[in-house]
Design a protein around this nucleic acid. Sequence first.
DNA 1: GTTCCGCATGAATCGATAG
DNA 2: ACTATCGATTCATGCGGAA
Lengths: 273, 273
Amino acid sequence: MGSFKIILGDCRDKLSEVNDNSVDLIFTSPPYADQRKKTYGGVHPDQYVEWFLPISQELLRVLTPTGTFILNIKERVVNGERHTYVLDLIKAMRGQGWLWTEEFIWHKKNSYPGKWPNRFRDAWERLLQFNKSRSFHMYQDEVMLPIGDWAKSRLSNLSETDKIRDNSKVESGFGKNVSNWVGRERVYPTNVVHLSTETANKNHSAAFPQALPAWFIRLFTKPGDTVLDPFMGSGTTVMAALEMQRKAIGIEIVPEYYDLVAEQLSTYQEPLL
Amino acid sequence: MGSFKIILGDCRDKLSEVNDNSVDLIFTSPPYADQRKKTYGGVHPDQYVEWFLPISQELLRVLTPTGTFILNIKERVVNGERHTYVLDLIKAMRGQGWLWTEEFIWHKKNSYPGKWPNRFRDAWERLLQFNKSRSFHMYQDEVMLPIGDWAKSRLSNLSETDKIRDNSKVESGFGKNVSNWVGRERVYPTNVVHLSTETANKNHSAAFPQALPAWFIRLFTKPGDTVLDPFMGSGTTVMAALEMQRKAIGIEIVPEYYDLVAEQLSTYQEPLL
DNA sequence: GTTCCGCATGAATCGATAG
DNA sequence: ACTATCGATTCATGCGGAA
């Protein structure tokens, strides 16, 4: 269990309590435009970029040069059209000095059913990866997946010759690409993360399953590193970080959420960072 | 088999041969930036929007007011960063009068495993939906999917009484919600299209499997409607349209591709539109 | 123990109706 | 006119009690 620090308040003010170049991963899901009206005031899509930029400026300050910022976001439909505030935000953050390194997709396995005359169910969200430099830390081996059916069927059809060739470590000849995978049980994932939305039985539902931050925490940090979530909510990111021996910082504006996380964390050993 | 018209030449010139408001669906995958250098000259990412806008202007002209434009595109990585030309293109096309109605994701099921030091395999592409008006045609029932295991297990447990009640079309009483599903075998999909990349048996590999245009052709057109692909390539979209009794128009700049498609189509009955 | 089954519910959108 | 609220839609998941 890593150490942690949670802060009650608006992250627009409270990020000043976080040191420069001290955070290895920021994983957060800010309130989407017009959502969570009672907390951050229900930011209108047209003002979303303006609202977010001071925050991303502070995040740029606190992130280490080799760190990563993962932003979970999806644009609303406004008047029958996808609003462009996410596109505008990406461009504006690049203007602040962020590099838009990659866009992962969270493909939600089990979204609520339904359709509308002009539209199907929205079953995916963006996970935008931003960095301060091109040489960021990435621990790809930590998120390998069990090998899939693709390899099973492909490899089961290998000839005996192919298998022997692999076992004897012959370095050349065709078949090498395929035989590379014999005996391996895990493969690298892609930039599509395919997880279910967790319908936890708990009273306080999270916007995303813990497996989602956990995946990125494994990928971009090592034990002892620091993970920050400036929109902590019910603490999903913080809990994932602590369970994986990372340090965690969380900021939350709603006292009820803050108290809930504080209570959950009170059982742990190292309350202060 | 629908009728067809294929045109040899640069779509920047040849779209003028297509009448105003005459196309019900445009499905195309333009050459990505810096790709296909020998054909469209390898458009540089920085000039991509400028290059594409005259084309999208013509597409706006030829599309019916109730028609749809599906643009299959994905931004390149340039100098370690995702380039923003797709974001810029969306915004610029809105300036031309297009509505950015939706963004579908093509999740490529079986991309070959692979990675780079800073990056995983890119396993998805954008399918941007643009419309001229909010009241476009959409035939959602045509793309329904086989029902999932949920219903199978639930419905197998219905009592005989429930089944009889459904068969006799009793309109009232509880159990109606459940019996709604008896006999139904298909559900609506989401905005994530989950298809394999098809390495066709043919000599000329397509950028996408035929199932991809086929899905959108079913969703946005009915038999007898007209489908246009201004970057025809090996003719995947055109063939899909014709096999589903739609009319097809294809434009291709490379004579070898044009000839290939012309030869494939020569066996069909109605060569001219 | 293991499997089976009921139940609750999730970053949603549209269109109609009410204030 | 303009905003706020409400109903319809109908799958996948995990938990927990039952068989």
